[in-house]
């Protein structure tokens, strides 16, 4: 291929060229080819410029240490565990409040209906029905809480997301 042969396909020797430049292991044939192929000449020009820039930035920048990264990862893992645990607790708290509110509404309704006087005996006499209702509510809350808790495990996410 000569310098006029630059087309969309580029040149088959480009990857060889980059490897040779990275390793500093040039063969005379490859060097001769690079001088005559426009695609390879461009590849070489860019590869050299970028690799030199990479080397300079390697030498001059102070990276964050591995210890810092480890510490950050550990802290994040702890925070995530706490978040998961407290989320389940918050859901249970919310359900508890909901249950109390339902109870309050039921009590208020009894008051409005003028059954205040009969409320205490009613609680005693209709205790069976109320207890069954309460138990069902409590069970539903527990099942819901357990479902949310079990579903709150770390989910698989896309890379970097």
């Amino acid at each position: 291929m000569n310098r006029t042969d630059l087309n969309r396909a580029g040149c088959a020797h480009e990857s060889e060229l980059v490897k040779a430049e990275r390793a500093g292991a040039w063969t005379p044939e490859l060097l001769a080819h690079a001088e005559n192929c426009l695609a390879c000449a461009q590849t070489l020009q860019i590869a050299r410029a970028l690799q030199q820039s990479a080397q300079r930035s390697h030498l001059l920048h102070r990276m964050p240490s591995a210890g810092q990264v480890w510490f950050k990862a550990q802290r994040r893992a702890r925070e995530a565990a706490i978040r998961r645990a407290t989320r389940s607790m918050r859901v249970m708290q919310f359900l508890g409040v909901l249950y109390a509110l339902a109870l309050a509404v039921w009590g208020a309704r009894s008051l409005v209906a003028g059954e205040l006087n009969t409320l205490t005996p009613a609680l005693k006499s209709a205790g069976g029905g109320f207890a069954v209702l309460s138990s069902l509510c409590a069970l539903a809350c527990m099942a819901l809480g357990l479902l949310i808790f079990l579903g709150d495990r770390p989910r698989k996410q896309g890379l970097g997301r």
Binding site: A54, S57, H58, A66, V69, W70, A73
Partner: peptide, 22 residues
């Protein structure tokens, strides 16, 4: 785990940083 991270970090972090910087 920390030692293994250190080993991996030393081998890979500089090229990764240069890539991200550019």
């Amino acid at each position: 785990g920390e030692e293994r991270l250190q080993e991996l970090y030393e081998a890979t972090s500089r090229p990764l940083w240069a890539y991200l910087f550019h």
